[in-house]
């Protein structure tokens, strides 16, 4: 049986948002504290390029 930590849910939330900036902006608009981390998948997710980069970079 899972144990629910009620303390966590009762505290003000600080969100870490990775990737899509619009999610962070939406939370900020609702006065939720959010830290945005700019991230996107390497080579835009292109697997052929990722394989080449593994070898060359």
């Amino acid at each position: 049986m899972a144990i629910i930590n009620n303390d966590l849910l009762n505290q003000p939330l600080i969100i870490i948002n990775i990737g899509v900036q619009k999610f962070a902006e939406s939370l900020s608009g609702q006065e939720v504290q959010v830290v945005h981390i700019d991230w996107s998948p390497p080579a835009g997710g292109d697997e052929e390029m990722i394989d080449l980069l593994d070898e060359l970079l």
């Binding site: 996107s40 390497p42 080579a43 835009g44 292109d46 390029m49 080449l52 980069l53 060359l56 970079l57």
Partner: peptide, 8 residues
């Protein structure tokens, strides 16, 4: 060119 492709 590697950095351009990696970062898009």
């Amino acid at each position: 060119i590697r950095k351009v492709v990696q970062t898009n």
